[in-house]
């Protein structure tokens, strides 16, 4: 068999094997993702999406002005999901730091200071390419907070609008 034809046949076999395994493992794995994700920032948070996931946007604040209006009421608490370094470099004025990757270590302190479970919490991170605010909202809801919403444009959009920010811890 000519070398080129043989090479193409062998490569095709490797690819078919890989594709079949990939789709099979993805279908069976709890970490599997949807075959198509949400990658358009104008549509909201970008993410791969879990299998069979129905993407819900009902807890998202999609306009920075809406987030600011809630900020002006003074009755909501902004919760920063980013790491402490980013938080100290600048955050929404009055926001609490609760880094999502170190949630367990910080949560006890957080709930001690905010024991009211019906307090409105607004989580945020670095914008629509950042999933941390959604993850944090899920954690807080699982831990009993009943009014948790997500400001999906996050700190960059807030800062760009010139809304109140503060620095340090």
């Amino acid at each position: 068999m000519p070398l080129l034809a043989r090479t193409l046949r062998e490569i095709s076999q490797i690819l078919v094997l890989a594709i079949l395994f990939a789709l099979g493992v993805n279908a069976m794995s709890p970490r599997g993702i949807a075959l198509m994700g949400q990658w358009d920032v104008s549509e909201g948070l970008v993410r791969a999406g879990a299998k069979n996931e129905v993407m819900t946007h009902d807890r998202e604040i999609t306009r920075v002005q809406d987030a600011y209006a809630l900020f002006q009421t003074g009755s909501v608490l902004f919760v920063d999901a980013r790491d402490e370094t980013l938080y100290s470099e600048g955050h929404i004025k009055g926001a609490e730091s609760l880094p999502v990757y170190d949630y367990d270590a910080h949560f006890e302190n957080f709930i001690a200071r905010h024991p009211r479970m019906d307090q409105t919490l607004i989580t945020y991170c670095s914008g629509r390419e950042c999933e941390d605010s959604h993850t944090l909202a899920t954690y807080l809801t699982d831990d009993g907070y009943t009014k948790v919403v997500i400001f999906i444009d996050g700190y960059p959009a807030w800062q760009k609008e010139g809304f109140p920010v503060e620095y340090g811890h």
């Binding site: 490797i14 890989a18 789709l23 993702i33 994700g37 990658w39 358009d40 999406g49």
Partner: peptide, 16 residues
């Protein structure tokens, strides 16, 4: 966008 998830699923297994 419509290629991203499929690439993320298949490419690692091609590597493997």
């Amino acid at each position: 966008g419509y290629v991203i998830n499929l690439s993320a699923i298949i490419l690692p297994f091609v590597e493997l």
